Simulated scan of single mutants.
Amino acid sequence: MSLHITPVSPALGARIEGVDLSQPLSAAHHAQLHQALLDHQVLFFRNQPLTPAQQARLAAHFGDLHIHPIYPNVPGQPEVLILDTAVTDLRDNALWHSDVSFLETPALGAILSARQVPPYGGDTLWASSSAAYEALSEPLKRLLDGLSATHDLNKSFPESRFAITEQDKARFEDAKRRHPPRSHPVVRTHPVTGRKGLFVNEGFTTRINELPDAESDAILKLLFSHSTQPQFTVRWQWQQDDVAFWDNRITQHFAIDDYSPQRRIMHRATVLGDAPY
């Protein structure tokens, strides 16, 4: 049975109907979802309750899964991390970022399941990195092509917030040891579509390596602002049991922190990708 695909924004995003994500994907549905992800960059599904095991199985259709070095995970299902505002300081999600871009092989994508959402607020924004790149002037594209940038776990996960207890400190020091800063191209080529996109983000990118500090700061400030303009974005209003699946190679996202003191619980399964080029 073919999926029903409804675009929700010109730049990116589509709502998908006609599949039960709690069941193993058929070969046909897997192929259709993969193509829809390439075409629309972020996919949205309503009314798809998933257990952590089902969510991990779904994500594993698309690649090996990542275990996050900082966030807590579901007991017995370590590939599914927990984003719970009653437990963890999630300010690092309330800015534009590309998940785990500090890895040598950052995420291909992620599947996010809404377990508990406030009655209003708590929306998430996604931005198309390819749409942002394609809107740049040709001289600026030529400047950026061939440059690299440093991505650092410490920028979004500072010791002051994530190493409070002795147990936290040990985990944090281990995370820093296993995940030193990494360099990636400023302009990344999508490994499947060949489409170019900006691969710098406010969450983890600290500097452009080939430029002096002042020039690096100025260019990054410009790119952070340019790439998140409204015309490059889509905004999703969560309902309980919604699922979002995004291509992390060509997007970045922002979880709006506007619902305190209400609680928001999300589960995320992250699919590992390949080294950017």
Rank of each mutant, 00 (worst) to 15 (best):
Q23K: 15
L50S: 04
L65V: 01
L58G: 12
G109H: 05
H34I: 01
A31L: 02
I70P: 12
D64F: 14
Q41G: 09
H40T: 11
A127W: 10
D39H: 07
G76F: 14
P72H: 13
H97I: 10
D99W: 09
D123A: 13
H61C: 13
P118H: 09
S98Q: 10
L112M: 06
R57Y: 12
H68I: 01
P78F: 02
L58Q: 03
H97C: 06
S101A: 05
N93P: 02
V19A: 04
I111V: 07
L25P: 06
W96M: 03
D92F: 15
H40F: 15
Q77N: 01
A28E: 10
L50I: 12
T124H: 14
P78Y: 00
N73Y: 12
F102E: 07
A53R: 11
T85K: 03
S98R: 08
V74T: 03
P118N: 09
Q48P: 12
F62V: 03
V117A: 00
N93K: 12
Q116H: 13
A31V: 04
L37P: 14
F102C: 08
D84L: 01
D20M: 13
A27F: 02
V100L: 11
D64G: 10
N47Y: 12
G121Q: 03
P52N: 07
G122D: 05
H29G: 06
F62A: 02
D92N: 15
L58D: 09
R46T: 10
S128L: 04
Q54G: 15
A56K: 10
S98A: 15
A27Q: 01
L108S: 02
V87E: 04
V87Q: 05
S98T: 15
D20E: 11
A60W: 15
P118W: 10
L43C: 09
A114C: 09
A53G: 14
A53D: 14
S22K: 12
Q32Y: 01
R46P: 07
L90W: 07
S101M: 03
A36N: 03
Q23F: 04
P106A: 06
P119S: 11
H66K: 02
S113Q: 01
P118R: 03
Y120N: 05
L65W: 12
A94D: 07
P119I: 15
A107N: 09
W126N: 00
S101K: 03
Q23P: 05
L33Q: 00
Q55A: 04
P119V: 14
Y71F: 08
Y120P: 01
